Every structure is written in C-alpha cells, then in structure tokens.
Simulated assay, not measured.
Amino acid sequence: MSPPLATPTPVLQLQAAGFCTDGGRELLAPIDATVHRGECVALVGPNGAGKSTLLKMLCARIAATHGVVRVQGHDLAGWPAPDRARHVAVLAQSESVDLGLLVRDYVAIGRLPHQHRVARAEHARVVDAALRTCRVDTLAARRLSTLSGGERQRVHLARALAQEPTLLLLDEPTNHLDLAARADLLALVRGLGITVVAALHELGLVPSFADRVWMLQAGRLVADGPPREALSAQRVASVFGMELVHTRHPRHGGTLWSFEREAA
C-alpha cells in the first residue's frame, strides 16, 4: 500500500486578516489565504489597492486590526522580533543604507538575528553562500556606491537571504531596473526554492514568475489562483482597464502575455 501523500506545509496563513485605520477606514478587507512552502505568489493591483498595506502586515510593520497573520504557525502579533527576523526577510522598494559599506559587510548585516546562536564560521559560510547564490561574490570587496542598479538589488537580496528566511517578501523589487535586470532578478528569486510573496506592478512579469496570483482591488482580494486563472481577460479588463492578449512565441511555441490599454 502506497504511503499517504505528504500534506503541503503552510508557511503563511491569513485568517480573516485585515486592517482599518484608527478612524475606522478599512484599507484591507478580511483575507483568508494560505501559502505553502516553496510557492511564489505575485501580489498585483492598481495603485491604492492595498498592496503596501498587506506587505506591511505580513512583515509586522503594522498589526492586523482584525483576524490573524501566522508564519510557521506563529501569530505575528505576539512573535518576538528576533524570532520573526529569523523567519521573515523583506526586500523593500528602496533600501536606505550607507553606500560606503563593503558588499560583504552589508550582506553580513542579515546575520544579526542569528548572533550568539551559531559559531562565527557558520555566519561566514551563510554569507558566502548568499553572495554566490545572488552572483555577487565577485563584488564582495567593492563598496555599494560603485554598483549598478541591478548589482545593488542583487546585493540587497543577498542580505535578505543571509537571514535564512522561510518567507521572503519583496516590494516592487524590479523598480528602476532595466529589462534584462528585471528578468534576471525574478528568475533568481524564482529559483531559490523558498516561499515568496512579491508585489509586482508590471503584469507581464507575473506569468513566468508566479505559482499563484493575489489580485487586490480597493482593499479586497478579488483573485487568488494560478496566473492563467487569476489574470483572466475579464478580470484584467475590470481591475486594470487593460486588454489581455495571448500570442504564440515564434521560437519556442510558448504563450506570450501582453497587456494593452483598452481602446476608447
């Protein structure tokens, strides 16, 4: 008799989790959703839809005003910050750092949540691995100020990976990057094998990156599913006012997704 299939491990759980301002304005309606180990979730929606509010809630920068957010089974609201930092890493839209720092020293900042818990050699091993994974090991002795935008973003990612997170949160990680750097960064993140929730404003990047899409509109989760389901032509038109066009790639035969402004 075959053994039972293993139940997917929930890394992130939102249980009727939402957020209201002190004045009672609802910025995020209650959300029920679960993200399992290794899943890549793209968070999409128009400006003002609630993406930033949701990401802040997921990393405990703000606390859910109703419902619960859990990571690895722990309620974020009551989880001590050092413990949380060993499980949740954030790559913000813009990182405010001392550009005079050496790359290696900056990446090593990601080890702070693990200080006094492992030997110094283990810290060095993890930093080295993060540098290699993000393909910035050859830049380790350079200062952040000397790097290109794409190089600097990979270094920020290496710092996040040095935390050894089980959940990685990305807030518009491809902003200010050229086309090649955008594709490279998302392919790198996709290949990490860890659980990721990434806010993306460019819908064309979503299909090749995401296992699932969370689509927000006016503070409500209006879609949660694989890209082909969540990014349906009808929903894209309704939420973004854009027309979705599928075409066949002339070289490898795959599907190309393009999003065009609907004709008046």
Rank of each mutant, 00 (worst) to 15 (best):
G193F: 09
A85N: 07
V197H: 00
A130C: 09
L192R: 01
M242R: 12
T247D: 13
K56H: 14
V71H: 06
T133V: 15
D83G: 09
P8D: 06
H74T: 00
E151R: 04
A119T: 14
A230V: 10
G45L: 01
L177F: 01
L54A: 06
H87K: 12
R142K: 08
G48Q: 02
V206T: 07
A81K: 14
V239E: 04
E164N: 12
E262K: 12
V97M: 12
H74R: 14
V90M: 10
Q217W: 11
L101Y: 12
E95W: 13
D224K: 05
R86F: 07
V245W: 08
P30L: 05
L216D: 05
R190H: 15
D105A: 15
G241Q: 08
S148C: 05
L147M: 02
S232P: 03
A129R: 14
A108G: 02
A263M: 08
V136P: 06
A158E: 08
R61C: 09
T133Y: 05
S145K: 13
L28I: 09
G191F: 05
A160D: 05
Q72N: 15
S96K: 13
E122M: 07
R248Y: 04
A64W: 07
V35I: 13
T195G: 09
L157Q: 09
S2K: 12
T53G: 02
A198I: 02
P46H: 11
W257D: 10
V44E: 01
L144T: 07
E243A: 15
G18D: 03
A187N: 15
L102F: 01
A130E: 08
L28K: 09
V103I: 09
T34W: 05
T146V: 02
V245L: 15
G67Y: 06
D178T: 08
A124H: 13
D98G: 03
M1H: 08
A141M: 11
L14F: 10
G50R: 04
P165H: 11
L231I: 07
L168N: 11
Q93F: 05
P226T: 12
P46C: 12
W214K: 09
V68F: 00
F209K: 11
L28D: 01
L186A: 05
Q163D: 07
L244N: 10
